[in-house]
Design a protein around this nucleic acid. Structure first.
Lengths: 189, 189
DNA sequence: ACCTGAACACCGTTCAAGT
DNA sequence: ACCTGAACACCGTTCAAGT
């Protein structure tokens, strides 16, 4: 009559997984560590996620959706496209600083099946492509969006990895890169 | 009098590790799989590398040195800096296509201690900074080099991850991105 | 001086048994 | 319907014993 009530949920498991990911890295996201955090034994997780790689994929998709939301919020105004792109690039960088390891998961080519869902990534890409079209016209939209996304991701990823060891003003390099790409693609419109 | 002669070497182990890395991914680089490839039992590896994370770091450093060589070769001529930068960006992209998983290791922020040596990365960065200085002057050299490296890395990483799903001409986006960054930073010189 | 088998702790996963 | 302990295969690592 009272079959065992759920003591956790898929959402709680994914959220716990994201915490562990940022604290201990991807290797630290074990079924044991996540189960401990939601106060359950490891085998119980299999009632909510298929296996560890499905859990990793769910964590990545969760992060992608949060990123999409941040980018939508930043790109919504009807400013000139250069401003929207700069503001989305900033939002991306802030997300990457909050969630560096999740950001790496979104782009850095995990094993097939362990990455975020394509829909969640497409949702994050849409506002960038829209602003790219406003900037560079229909033909230039996709290359412009790709270049800006690649730049923002590459930059923040190197930043998170501590790759900028030579001093200098890192913020300025980011600003100038975004500005250079914007004006470079705009000219071709 | 004839103590056991070495049946393998650190170099052979690192080379085997790089093969396994590209074939099966980072998770596939186990002490067991690498030992099998060099025809030795797992415990023997510990005579040549401290532990698995030191092996991963050695694989990353090996890849960084190969990348540095490719970039040095591409950036050597005394062409105008725009040409040198474009040619180094192409060399980077070719390396990333040959060794996609190693490339991800070089930039995508592994756990501390598992990344490539800083010297090997600095060696790869040097020719880019030099060309950046020729393009943008002493003050603009570092931002220009960082922006171009971030772009090239981000782009090839997304390419390897299959992130460019929307069709269109991917090569063209890469070319245009490099050109936009070059001219954007040159103008500020 | 390096290689090996045995051993240990740990993890992902399955499954029968609980409630 | 979900949770659990027990069990299995696998991996990283150590170490004493071989040559």
């Amino acid at each position: 009559m009272s079959p065992a009530r759920a003591r956790t949920s898929r959402a709680a498991i994914v959220a716990a997984g994201r915490e562990v990911l940022e604290e201990r890295g991807l290797d630290g996201v074990s079924m044991a560590s996540v189960a401990r955090r939601v106060a359950v034994r490891p085998p119980s997780l299999y009632k909510h996620v298929r296996d560890r790689s499905a859990l990793i994929a769910a964590i990545a998709t969760d992060a992608a959706n949060e990123l999409a939301q941040a980018i939508e919020a930043a790109g919504g105004a009807d400013d000139p496209p250069e401003h929207r792109l700069a503001s989305m690039a900033h939002a991306f960088r802030e997300f990457a600083r909050r969630s560096p390891r999740a950001t790496a998961m979104l782009f850095a080519g995990l094993e097939p099946g362990a990455g975020p869902s394509l829909e969640s990534l497409a949702r994050a890409a849409r506002p960038v492509v829209d602003a790219g079209e406003a900037l560079a016209g229909p033909a230039g939209a996709l290359p412009a969006a790709r270049a800006l996304t690649a730049f923002a991701y590459g930059f923040t990823s190197m930043e998170a990895a501590g790759a900028f060891q030579l001093g200098g003003n890192v913020n300025e390099a980011f600003e100038q890169g975004v500005a250079a790409l914007s004006s470079g693609f705009a000219r071709r419109a």
